[in-house]
């Protein structure tokens, strides 16, 4: 097998060259371009290509950008924590309680909402969480509250709830895959050796599922930070995030270089946090690929 694989090295390179070329031209080059661009300046429609730190100085000194960045990180961190915590029992249920031939159906069931129009889904959360919304009407109808709740729309909380819904399958799938890989005989051994079900879960299942949990955290955290639609539709002024500011700089204020600098800073922070997170969890990831 190894020999066979090696002999086709040239053909492998040839096959991968298409997708690689596309990724270099459409991904790596534009990312490099935006980095260069963030050091330029724009005066109305004229681009000045003299390199300068001005955009970065402005991005770090103006409190509005700092506030948006901190808020985006807070929202992403909360969304990640909530989504992963809520998703774990579901992944566990599908992996440990559902009959093997039904698992694919369950995973399909969990992923369907993810594939339906993102815009419409976010908009419907506005309908659900609104002043006369589904949730308030239901709670008033049930006599739980007298006045409609106002703390659930056009703010931080609304953004967190909506994003936690949008990224649910992203959290369930990696955890499910990690749980599926666990050798069930290890659990039997733990129980035979006198562990209770609960301690077996914490000492065997959870540590072995950690690569999935770490993966789920990253795959929720990284894209969430750049979400534009949710904060715009349900966030109100107190729930806007950094992506909204990037869009404003590019399409409304004609200050694309500053927008580029904000995008670079956001990506830089996310990359550093992701690497730190991976380093903190390296004892769970060691020896597994």
């Amino acid at each position: 097998m190894a020999d066979r694989q090696r002999s086709g090295s040239g053909r492998g390179m040839l096959l991968i060259s298409g997708p690689l070329l596309y990724a270099v031209v459409m991904l790596a080059a534009p990312m490099a371009a935006i980095l260069v661009f963030s050091f330029w300046t724009q005066d109305f429609l004229n681009i000045d290509t003299t390199p300068t730190w001005a955009n970065y100085r402005e991005a770090f000194s103006d409190p509005i950008y700092r506030e948006l960045m901190v808020r985006s990180l807070k929202i992403s961190a909360m969304v990640t924590a909530i989504t992963v915590l809520l998703a774990f029992p579901v992944a566990y249920f599908i992996s440990f309680r559902v009959r093997p031939e039904r698992k694919a159906l369950w995973i399909f069931l969990v992923t369907i909402p993810f594939w339906t129009s993102y815009l419409i889904r976010v908009f419907l959360w506005k309908v659900i969480l609104g002043y006369n919304g589904v949730l308030n009407s239901a709670l008033i109808g049930l006599g739980v509250i007298d006045e409609p709740l106002t703390l659930i729309l056009y703010n931080f909380n609304a953004v967190v709830i909506t994003l936690a819904h949008a990224f649910a399958p992203f959290a369930i799938l990696p955890i499910f895959v990690a749980l599926e890989r666990i050798d069930r005989s290890l659990l039997e051994a733990a129980l035979d050796l006198g562990e209770t079900r609960l301690s077996a879960f914490f000492r065997v299942t959870l540590p072995l599922a950690m690569p999935g949990v770490v993966g789920a955290c990253l795959i929720v955290f990284i894209p969430t930070i750049g979400d534009y639609v949710t904060p715009r539709l349900v966030g109100g002024p107190g729930g806007l995030m950094i992506a909204n500011m990037i869009q404003t700089q590019f399409l409304k204020l004609n200050n694309a270089p500053l927008g580029a600098a904000l995008a670079v800073i956001a990506m830089g922070i996310v990359t550093i946090l992701a690497l730190v997170f991976l380093a903190l969890n390296r004892r769970f990831l060691r020896g597994r690929s």
């Binding site: 694989q5 090696r6 090295s9 492998g12 991904l27 750049g226 996310v270």
Partner: peptide
Amino acid sequence: YRFPGKSGILGLIMLPLVLPEIIVAVSLLV
């Protein structure tokens, strides 16, 4: 097949899966 730089190359191609879409959008726009 096995070829030099395989995991790095595949990593780059798979990167858009986790990249925030707004980053892809603005960098292509530029």
